[in-house]
Design a protein around this nucleic acid. Structure first.
Lengths: 120, 120
DNA sequence: ATCAAGTACCTTGCCTGATATAGTAGTTGG
DNA sequence: CCAACTACTATATCAGGCAAGGTACTTGAT
């Protein structure tokens, strides 16, 4: 039944990373490893956003002023750094969702003629 | 009315390039510059796949055995190199469409809770 | 007590692919 | 005759995913 399975290649992930991080942080403040685990959980382990990729994204977003952060208590393991989405970050998130939608529409538009054949 | 406008960033384009090239070549054999122009035309000039990007994609796909090519007559300008999609290329195209769909679903799944808020 | 495993974060280096920039060559229209 | 267009190529830069490998702390099992 899972014939429609796909995989997320690095080139696709590149277009999703920041959006995912911002989206999860908009729900509530989280720390890095929590985001890492949450993505695994929600995807039933079908998608792992690598830690190196995730932490790099977080740092990038914070440097751009899209996230603010503070150290929190570490219940187990080391300390945790919690992140919140800033106003600028919310704007960034909305823009990235628009861009994603735009990309989808563009692909449909460019491949209008073949999409049907490919369904075979 | 064009409030829903977006833009295609390099990170998004990365996930689309090969798919677009293969899709257009599946319709009929074309040469590089033709693909370049066709993308501009179909998008009403809202999306330009840069020549450097396009030709790089073509070369990559041909090296992978997804495209075959031959020189054709050049009606105007220099000679033209025409490309056809191979069996392997068709497979690649289908896989890339599946992956794209998978990415879209994954994003919806991961951002289920925020997607509504973002619509505001 | 020890030790593997899990939590939590960070660093470095490699590699791919988008893009800027520039160049070659032929063709066409004014 | 020259600007503009067609058609393709080459080089260099840059961003970001990812492998690999730390550090430091906690917990559970032996």
């Amino acid at each position: 039944m899972n014939a429609n399975q796909g995989e997320l290649t690095p080139d696709l992930i590149r277009g999703m990373t920041d959006t995912i991080v911002l989206g999860l942080l908009l729900e509530e403040d989280r720390y890095g490893y929590e985001i890492y685990k949450e993505i695994l959980r929600r995807s039933d382990n079908t998608f792992e956003l690598k830690e190196a990729t995730l932490y790099a994204s977080i740092r990038r977003l914070e440097q751009e002023g899209c996230l603010s952060s503070h150290w929190g208590e570490g219940s187990r393991g080391g300390r945790r750094r919690y992140y919140s989405v800033t106003v600028r970050g919310l704007d960034r998130y909305r823009r990235s969702l628009r861009n994603w939608t735009f990309a989808k529409q563009m692909l449909d538009r460019l491949l209008a003629r073949t999409e049907k054949e490919a369904a075979l």
